[in-house]
Nucleic acid binder design. Structure first.
Lengths: 152, 152
DNA sequence: CCTTTTAAAATGTGTATACAATTTATAAAA
DNA sequence: TTTTATAAATTGTATACACATTTTAAAAGG
């Protein structure tokens, strides 16, 4: 099938400029690096990230975490189920409405400590592949929105 | 549960530096923008991206596309099923091994044309939220790896 | 005290994603 | 020609994710 020249033009523009397409590509590319490093420990980077954010709060609610990470509450609910089951997070009713109180368990902190070297390896490999400046841009851009979530 | 100071230190480092965590956060944040814009058309940005890359090849094989996008062949296989069903891609055996030939259909090109304005809206909103320089960094960094995939 | 409202959590459904294992269409070998 | 590789595609399984809907714990109202 041969596209009209307008269609070809549009395809070229999207193909060369789309921020989201690149973000996804980078996501897949870099995910592989971290997940490979973490695989021996049976934890995914997504899960580690949640442990880290919960630890930052000390005692957190679901909404605080899902807002901070810009994650849908339903997505967080499912992640929480797995993290509870692995005993890295402890969850109990807060007594206020349906709200829960969540905290990192001893096992959870031990896991953070155990995987730290592997995380560092993956992080370095990523800095290598993406370059320092791109990585820093991504981190600071992400930070801006993470902090937004923390204070909302 | 109170972490040891080593654990706290590690959590802080991961929390403030992890490239992958920010990449995922940005991914969720920006995905929302594009998916909201594209929702009326019943196409996801991931799917649009595949159409665009296939159109760039003209006639493509699965491996070409999945390599270019750094996507696992099994992931691509499933995406392909949906795109075939929507009749945006046409697929037929190439005659060489199990390899397939894939091309964008007329319906596919029409879809690209139809959603272009919505894509543009989302793209602008994204540039606004992330900022020009972060966006350009992401696009060029992604481009580097996309082109790698194109020539491999 | 019981009913109703409210907002947080959980569930149904569908796409995106990867790894491991299996199927399969040709090509190569016997 | 029948068997045996080979490599591409697909399928099984599991996590990640979001939207829409439903459930539910506690608060507010009667």
């Amino acid at each position: 099938m041969i596209p009209s020249s307008i269609q070809k033009q549009m395809a070229n523009t999207i193909g060369s400029d789309c921020v989201m397409a690149r973000l996804r590509l980078l996501n897949r590319l870099v995910s592989g690096i971290y997940d490979e490093a973490l695989r021996p420990y049976g934890i995914k980077l997504t899960q580690l990230t949640i442990l880290i954010v919960v630890s930052k709060f000390g005692l957190a609610t679901s909404l605080q975490i899902s807002r901070a990470l810009h994650m849908d509450p339903s997505s967080f609910s499912r992640a929480l189920t797995r993290l509870k089951q692995k005993q890295w997070l402890h969850v109990e009713p807060s007594g206020e409405g349906k709200m829960l109180h969540i905290e990192v368990t001893e096992k959870g902190f031990d896991m953070i400590e155990k995987v730290y070297p592997a995380w560092e390896t993956a992080q370095e490999k990523t800095l290598d592949i993406l370059g320092e400046s791109a990585s820093e841009m991504i981190v600071s851009s992400g930070n801006k929105h993470l902090l937004e979530g923390l204070t909302r």
